[in-house]
């Protein structure tokens, strides 16, 4: 009988001690967690960073892909400068340039890969761009923009030489350069 009582008491002691130990340990760990981080911050740590990281990565990847795609396609900027009183050659240069673009580069124009601007150097609004290209009168420049680098060819001389009386020759020269710049 005594033995049975002893076993019961021991068992009880063990159960109580287990309960006490477990009850003490859990609050301690929670306490330590709560002390170091607030609940929202824990939630943040567990959830937000993952989603943000993922989004950032996606966004970055998309941006990178988009920028690579953008950078991989060269852009062509064509500037035709003129004064207010235009001569026959100057008008011929504009017309032949338009004809070249409409005939051979219509889709690039529509997509914005090629941009054609006709600018009067007498207009104050064009002063900055005219200064950049050192355009003081009639002039035709073709600029290739690729990976942030600009390469410019000056077609003013060829324009004056050919556009009026040998248009097909001028068109050929311009077409070849634009085709080369699009590569």
């Amino acid at each position: 009988m005594k033995i049975i009582k002893k076993i019961k008491f021991t068992t009880l002691v063990i159960i109580v001690s287990i309960c006490i130990t477990s009850c003490n340990s859990t609050p301690n760990s929670l306490e330590s967690n709560l002390q170091s981080d607030s609940i929202p911050s824990i939630i943040d740590t567990l959830t937000a960073p993952i989603s943000i990281t993922d989004n950032t990565n996606i966004e970055n990847t998309e941006n990178t892909t988009a920028s690579i795609k953008k950078e991989e396609i060269p852009k062509i900027l064509i500037y035709n400068f003129h004064v207010t009183n235009r001569c026959a050659s100057c008008i011929a240069i504009e017309n032949a340039t338009k004809k070249t673009l409409d005939t051979y580069f219509k889709s690039e124009l529509d997509k914005g890969i090629i941009k054609f601007s006709i600018l009067s150097v007498d207009d104050d609004a064009n002063a900055k761009i005219a200064e950049k290209y050192q355009a003081f009168g009639s002039a035709l420049f073709v600029t290739r923009v690729f990976k942030g680098k600009e390469t410019t060819s000056d077609f003013t001389g060829d324009g004056f030489k050919y556009a009026k009386n040998k248009e097909e020759k001028f068109i050929e020269i311009l077409k070849n350069q634009i085709t080369e710049y699009l590569k």
């Binding site: 050192q134 003081f136 000056d154 077609f155 001389g157 060829d158 324009g159 004056f160 030489k161």
Partner: peptide
Amino acid sequence: LTNFAFSKIHT
């Protein structure tokens, strides 16, 4: 020298 002439004559 046509291209040279047209690009430099203004200076």
